[in-house]
Structure formats: C-alpha cells, structure tokens
C-alpha cells in the first residue's frame, strides 16, 4: 500500500510533466504539421529566465519565464517557420533542428555550458506525509498543476471561438482557411500557448532538478516527442495520454524490473513503443486530418 501510493505519485507526476511537454509539441503539430524540436529550447530559455530572476518573488520570476518562452516561440515562428509553411514537413523538421541547435549554441556561447543552480520554489522541496507514506510536495503540486492546465486548455479549445478555430485548423487546415479561419492568428496563438506550456514545464522541472544548462530541455523533449507519436501525431488528447503513458511505464519499469535489467530500462520502454506502433501505426488516437490520402 505504502509502495503503491509512492509509485502512483511518482508515475503521475513524471507522466504529467511529459504530458504538458507533449501537449506543447502536439499543439504546433496539429495546426501546421511541424514536429518542433526547438520546443526543448523554449523550456531551457524559460528556465534561464527563472535563473536570471532568482530572488525575485515567484510571480515575477514566473511571469518573466512566460514572457521569454512565449516571445521566443512567436519569434521563431515568424522568422524560421512561417517562410517554410508550404514546405515539406521534413524540411520544417530540419528547420526546427536548426533553430534548436542555434539556440543551444548561443546559450553555450553567451552563458557557458556549466550548469547553473536555481531553486525557483524553495517551499516545494520538502516531504509531506500521506498516511504512513512520505512523498515530496513538489510531486503533488506537479500533478495538480498538470490537471488544472489540461482542464483549462480543454475548456479553451471547446468553449472559445479561438479554440474552435484551432480545432478546425487541426482537423483540416485548408478547409478551415476556406471557411474564414485566420491561419496566421491560429498558428501564432498555437505557438504562444506552446510557449506558455513550456514555461510551466520549466518551472516544475527546475524546481525538481535544481539546475539549468543549455541542454536542459532536450531529454524531456525527446521523451515527449515519443509520447506524441504513441498518442497519435496531431491529436491533442493523444499527446496527453501518450505523455502520461510514457511517464507511468518508465516509472513502473524502474520500480519493478529486476536490478540486473534496470540499466536497460530504455530498451524495454522503446520495445514497448515499437510494439504499440506495430499494432497502431498511426498512434493510439490517430488524428483524423492526418490520414494518408491517395
């Protein structure tokens, strides 16, 4: 019972972090078929903003992180991705790699590659008891924040006119444009939302890891990208469920694999991913607009 609560909390908090990252990637993919690898740098730069604003009240530091991530997302869209909007998805993906590498190297160049310590929300670094079980407060907060954000985003997509436009664009971009959806606005809002999500991920992740360095967002981004593929590229519920699933499976593998096999945790994880894709090549929740048309 004790162990079960702990594993459930571990799995949900890690899954939540992946889900928020996957959602940021999925938002962009759904409206413009761009697998944005530079999403990692949105997280990284937001974390650097938190570092720069260390010592300021949390509200200020977090607002700064949001401003930085949203601005960076919108600027990369304008400079790097808008000119390529009619290009092949592969071309856009390569462009996103370029943006990602450029920002990483700029960070190394200007701020150095040595990790910098930060502690954005010191009060979260403590253990709380659920019955006899000790869990870190941060994990509970992570789970709560993920739940609230997912709910808010769902309401935004379902209840607002902009949400409707985004869903229409995700389903069939050309058709949506023909019916009067403003393509540029939808895409810019998608990038801004993705930047906002990245800032939240940066705050939660920095509070957990306690440092920032130029490659901070990369491992998160890679796992979250796998999650969007499992969930179904272009499907937002798919991205969320994929993220949760990867977090849960990783935690369970780490918890229950025998010690000799634990170093090969990733091999088991990716074997499961391959299996999932063999059974459902388009992911668990294929996006309707994405099917190959002959």
């Amino acid at each position: 019972m004790n162990a079960a609560i702990q594993i459930a909390v571990d799995a949900m908090s890690l899954g939540g972090l992946y889900a928020l990252t996957a959602l940021g990637i999925g938002l962009i993919f759904s409206v413009m078929r761009l697998a944005n690898f530079a999403h990692a740098e949105l997280v990284t730069c937001a974390a650097y903003a938190l570092f720069a604003l260390s010592g300021q009240p949390l509200v200020m530091a977090f607002s700064g992180a949001i401003v930085v991530a949203v601005a960076l997302a919108v600027v990369t869209e304008r400079i790097a991705f808008r000119p390529l909007r009619r290009a092949d998805p592969t071309t856009m993906m390569i462009a996103s790699f370029t943006v990602s590498m450029l920002i990483q190297k700029l960070l190394v160049f200007t701020l150095g590659s040595r990790p910098k310590s930060l502690d954005p929300v010191p009060m979260l670094s403590q253990a709380v008891s659920i019955g006899p079980t000790q869990v870190s407060l941060l994990k509970l907060v992570t789970i709560a924040v993920c739940a609230v954000l997912l709910l808010a985003l769902t309401l935004f997509l379902k209840r607002t006119s902009f949400g409707l436009q985004m869903r229409a664009a995700a389903e069939n971009f050309t058709m949506a444009q023909l019916t009067g959806v403003r393509a540029n606005a939808v895409i810019v809002v998608a990038f801004a939302l993705s930047g906002g999500l990245a800032a939240v991920v940066a705050l939660l992740f920095a509070a957990q890891s306690g440092f920032v360095q130029p490659r901070l967002g990369v491992p998160l981004m890679i796992t979250a990208f796998v999650a969007t593929v499992i969930g179904g590229m272009g499907s937002l519920p798919g991205a969320v469920i994929g993220g949760l699933l990867v977090g849960v499976v990783t935690t369970l593998l780490q918890a229950y694999l025998p010690p000799d096999l634990r170093p090969f945790r990733e091999a088991f994880l990716f074997a499961l991913v391959i299996l999932a894709l063999l059974v459902r090549p388009n992911g668990l929740f294929p996006a309707r607009g994405l099917k190959e048309r002959i």
Binding site: I7, V9, D10, L14, L17, P219, L220, T223, T250, Q254
Partner: peptide, 13 residues
Amino acid sequence: DPSIDAQVSRING
C-alpha cells in the same frame, strides 16, 4: 533522467 523519483521511492520503501 528528468527524474529519479522511482529510485528514491525504492530507498524510502
């Protein structure tokens, strides 16, 4: 690894 929660929980358990 973004998190070592599972490893820490194992020690805690």
